[in-house]
Design a protein around this nucleic acid. Structure first.
Lengths: 138, 138
DNA sequence: GCTTATTCCTATAATTCCGATAGGATTTAT
DNA sequence: ATAAATCCTATCGGAATTATAGGAATAAGC
């Protein structure tokens, strides 16, 4: 499962993709996200370079890149960490599992890597611009 | 990410698949799993019908079904819940997301379902008997 | 300039989950 | 009897998750 935060983040970004610039208050209301929590999430998304902001009256948030250039995988990695089911199955952020005796002979890693590749193929091919499209998995 | 518990569970079950009956102490030692924690995990696996146990001296655990009939998906669902990335993307345990306005028009559900199907295809085709094999995804 | 609407910053809090440990009761083979 | 194992109940620290509170800083419009 991804976190509530990740679901909020995706929905907020898609809102921006569909409606253009918007304030936190607007997004929070339309997407049914707690306003104060959304503030924290948008700050994080800004740090990761997904959005830019303008302060003051009539300020708000804007996508920093075209919606067609931001994938679900990008967002989920930023908000929830690796897509993989175990640290040792991540290709973008490999880490040894704490208790692992020997990575090479680990009995479960192979399958977890296959699962991560399958998920990544879908999520890397799904973009904010058209999240309902069937991902073209190649 | 799956939980530590799930990784322990998979490794413990694969140990049984490979070496036949074994006690908690034996599995814990060979698989580098905390003994007391493994006790709790095996109890849970028994409740779910993956293993049977014998008490007393020379007791221990046995797979309740052939290793080739227990998939990674079976085990992970028992120890970690649905494979899906969101409650509303699960096919085996669908739940509405708490904050969801309308399931039908949810902007992220489509992709999450596609991701869940991709993962499930792999994990349902990977078995304790041969976890290193490439899953035959059909 | 004042007001208002906004982002930004820091701090805190409640709850839950995770990973584990402790101690002993019960069962069974030898 | 003894030893080796599962079973049972209880507890626990720490981390993560999901927020909320309160106000400072900024900018637009009148």
């Amino acid at each position: 499962m991804i976190s509530q935060k990740s679901r909020y983040a995706l929905r907020a970004l898609i809102h921006l993709a569909r409606h253009g610039d918007a304030s936190i208050a607007t997004i929070a209301e339309h997407e049914n996200i707690p306003r104060k929590y959304l503030e924290a999430i948008m700050a994080e998304l800004k740090l990761h370079g997904f959005v830019t902001s303008r302060r003051g009256k009539s300020g708000g948030y804007t996508l920093a890149r075209p919606a067609s250039a931001i994938s679900f995988a990008d967002v989920l990695r930023a908000t929830d960490g690796p897509l993989a089911l175990a640290p040792c199955a991540s290709r973008t952020a490999y880490r040894r599992c704490e208790d692992c005796v020997d990575v090479e002979t680990c009995s479960i890693r192979h399958a977890l890597i296959a699962a991560r590749d399958a998920t990544a193929a879908v999520l890397e091919a799904t973009f904010l611009s058209d999240p309902e499209a069937d991902a073209e998995v190649t």
